[in-house]
């Protein structure tokens, strides 16, 4: 297979087109600008639609419209824009619409900065707008994995009729890595529920259920879908985990640093391993059934995923945390030291 060097954001866009995406809507925001730029050049050649929206609010609602019309549709953004999209995401969830949104995370809160971050973890896993909302969240850690997860994102989104979020970060978006691109697939035909014109009886895509009993039934149905997703769609990667005395949990860019740190401490005789969640929601709780003596969570955020790790472990083992924020990425040496400290800390407290 031919391998080519591509920037994460561009690989993401190309992979989406190859996955049958035929509608992209976006608004400029760093560090994901290469996505709309690539889409503007290439989507029309693929017979698809590119619209630069007036805001992320409009962009997600254009995804609503296109997806509701039966076309694979997506948007991409970064934190501040993702906040604006959460209104539309809630409506899409309420209306059971598929669609893919990429969040190339940057430093927050507020305008923050444009450096890599994982600070939107709570927002993507807990906060897809108002109401009882969830969507599958995929977290790639290499450019190749971005490419590989793109068709998965569309398929999962359509299978469960919920939006799927791809949570990347500024490093993954900006870095170049060799990738193997899949063969393009033809876009699937519009599903039966799509509003393409009422040749038979009319179809309605709506999130309104005025009667409390009706809305409860609707939300309970959503919750059954959430439960099915929790049972069937957990994804993670384990690295040198089988005999590990200390397991480090990290995703995305942070997991790459941890991987190097694990190799370092292993070389010095400390049996460390890595659990790398690929689905942030559903959180891969199955990966936490085996408990080593000590856990450490490493994030490019101020302690968000660590809450899910503690929930998954339910107090079975102590969980340490090491996070850098503001766009600072720790070195493997720094993380190796954090792993050693975590183990020592346990000894001290024992």
């Amino acid at each position: 297979m031919k391998r080519i060097l591509m920037k994460g954001n561009e690989a993401l866009a190309e992979a989406a087109i190859r996955a049958g995406c035929r509608a992209y809507f976006g608004y400029p925001i760093t560090p994901q600008n290469e996505v709309p730029e690539y889409m503007a050049r290439h989507m029309p050649r693929a017979g698809g639609v590119f619209v630069q929206a007036e805001s992320e609010i409009a962009a997600i609602n254009m995804v609503h419209g296109a997806s509701g019309a039966g076309v694979r549709a997506m948007a991409s953004t970064s934190g501040p824009g993702f906040s604006l999209m959460t209104e539309g995401l809630s409506y899409m969830i309420g209306s059971r619409l598929p669609g893919v949104v990429v969040n190339v995370m940057r430093g927050g809160p507020g305008l923050g900065n444009i450096a890599p971050s994982q600070g939107d973890y709570f927002q993507v896993t807990r906060g897809l707008g108002h109401g009882d909302t969830h969507g599958i969240v995929l977290a790639p850690s290499t450019v190749q994995e971005i490419v590989d997860l793109m068709p998965v994102a569309f398929e999962l989104s359509e299978r469960y009729r919920l939006p799927v979020v791809i949570a990347a970060d500024g490093i993954l978006g900006q870095m170049m890595e060799p990738v193997t691109l899949p063969e393009p697939i033809a876009p699937p035909p519009p599903p039966d529920w799509a509003t393409t014109g009422a040749v038979g009886s009319p179809r309605v895509i709506s999130s309104i259920y005025l009667a409390p009993e009706d809305l409860e039934r609707h939300v309970l149905s959503l919750m059954r879908t959430y439960q099915e997703i929790r049972e069937r769609e957990q994804r993670w990667e384990a690295y040198r985990a089988d005999d590990a005395e200390v397991l480090v949990v990290a995703y995305g860019t942070a997991a790459r640093v941890v991987r190097s740190a694990v190799d370092r401490v292993r070389a010095q005789g400390l049996a460390a391993g890595l659990i790398r969640p690929i689905t942030l929601w559903p959180f891969p709780t199955t990966a936490f059934e085996r408990s080593p003596r000590r856990w450490l969570v490493v994030e490019l955020s101020a302690g968000q995923m660590v809450e899910d790790v503690r929930l998954a472990l339910s107090g079975r083992a102590p969980v340490g945390f090491h996070g850098r924020v503001g766009g600072v990425v720790p070195s493997p040496a720094e993380v190796a030291e954090a792993i050693r400290s975590a183990v020592v800390g346990e000894v001290v407290r024992a």
Binding site: V51, H64, G65, G68, A69, A73, G197, V204
Partner: peptide
């Protein structure tokens, strides 16, 4: 008696844009 999508408050022209762009003959 036609197909409908219900938009968030104020966003109907954006939803309509998404529909019309992918189904230009509708």
């Amino acid at each position: 008696d036609v197909d409908f999508q219900q938009a968030p408050h104020g966003r109907a022209p954006a939803v309509a844009t998404g529909i019309k762009r992918v189904l230009p003959d509708r």
